[in-house]
Design a protein around this nucleic acid. Structure first.
Lengths: 202, 202
DNA sequence: TTAGTGACGATTTATGGAACACGTCATACG
DNA sequence: CGTATGACGTGTTCCATAAATCGTCACTAA
């Protein structure tokens, strides 16, 4: 396992990592994860293949970082919706629509990245679990808000309601389903949001 | 396109078809769809490869029929739940649990068949659409029953409610998701059923 | 006329050896 | 001592070619 403090000076470390990630971002987007080799990334920044491994344990570690950044961009959109100051029900609906929109966007405008996200799921990279956990926490907070504001019912245990909502999100956010549902995804998201909101209403 | 009345006598036709389907059922289950050849099926019933094509247009047509039978078995379980005479809410909950249970069963006890169902989805065989349509009609009838009995609210347009429920079923019935969720599938089905029932309640 | 088949073209899939990619290490250089 | 690399073992991926499969058709035999 690679760890900090292997002997490199901090600032240089950081710059090199960024360089590698930038190159990876570009190459993965253009040619996909599988088709770009570590040698390609090394050449792009004018260093040797071996040196890449001073900054990342493996090619997969680079892929995971890129994947994480991709998830972060989606999560930023979710956070925007969360911080909009709108009523909880509206914010929850926005989560459905945001995830659907971002999923479609990934599928059509950034296909290679979509493939990476898919591979990450299939190969059990940790990135997906992290995303799930963060999403759950946002859902929990918006439901709690709604309950405090008297918008939502309080009988159902909070955790049960949260897990139900996250499950109901699957059809509009799981990359595998995007391919089957993409033509009706926005409408589906809206329908599911409506269903979920009725299930939460007082 | 193959059609009835190509010249064969009825009873013989039917028997041969059955023989072929029986052989296909056994071979597909043992070796999978891809690995069994039309020649294998022909040998199994003691006839020539060419003769098979008198009864089916293609290997895929045989696969579709087997797939349809598999869907039919699941749908039979759903129908059992529908005809149980229980309140609509209970019947709807049973649909969730039945589909989850049958999905798990297919995944673990009939893996080759699961692969066929998956291939059918990916290659766009008509069997999946038929299943969806039939499932939707059952959902519609149970929701309508619930509304008539005063169990369910009537404000949401019926079709909208139906489509929402069918969407909410996806996480527990889509074969692709089974592989990701199988360890919590029954619990997930229960949670989703609870959420859906709250969304429908008066 | 009807049940049934062998042979065949076109396409798909298996094979196995060569080329390539991943990740490690000993080492070079300032 | 920190930055950086070439060379190499091991596993994976390509790719050309051989083999097998799909589906058709002309044909046989009762």
């Amino acid at each position: 396992m690679q760890s900090a403090g292997k002997g490199q000076r901090g600032p240089i470390d950081h710059e090199r990592r960024e360089q590698i990630l930038d190159a990876a971002n570009e190459h993965f987007r253009h040619y996909g994860y599988k088709k770009t080799t570590v040698a390609d990334l090394a050449k792009a920044i004018g260093l040797s293949t071996a040196y890449i491994y001073k900054f990342f344990d493996s090619k997969r570690a680079i892929g995971e970082e890129i994947c994480r950044q991709c998830h972060e961009r989606v999560m930023a959109d979710v956070k925007d919706a969360m911080g909009s100051g709108k009523p909880a029900s509206e914010r929850l609906r926005l989560i459905f629509l945001t995830l659907a929109r971002d999923g479609i966007d990934l599928l059509f405008n950034d296909r290679k990245m979509h493939d990476i996200v898919l591979a990450a799921l299939e190969e059990g990279w940790s990135t997906a679990a992290d995303f799930d956990a963060e999403l759950l926490s946002h859902v929990r907070s918006v439901i709690a808000d709604g309950r405090d504001a008297g918008e939502f019912e309080r009988k159902t245990p909070l955790e049960e309601a949260c897990r139900g909502v996250v499950l109901a999100l699957q059809p509009v956010r799981h990359p595998v389903l995007l391919e089957f549902n993409h033509n009706t995804l926005i409408e589906d998201a809206s329908l599911l949001a409506g269903l979920v909101l009725r299930s939460l209403s007082v």
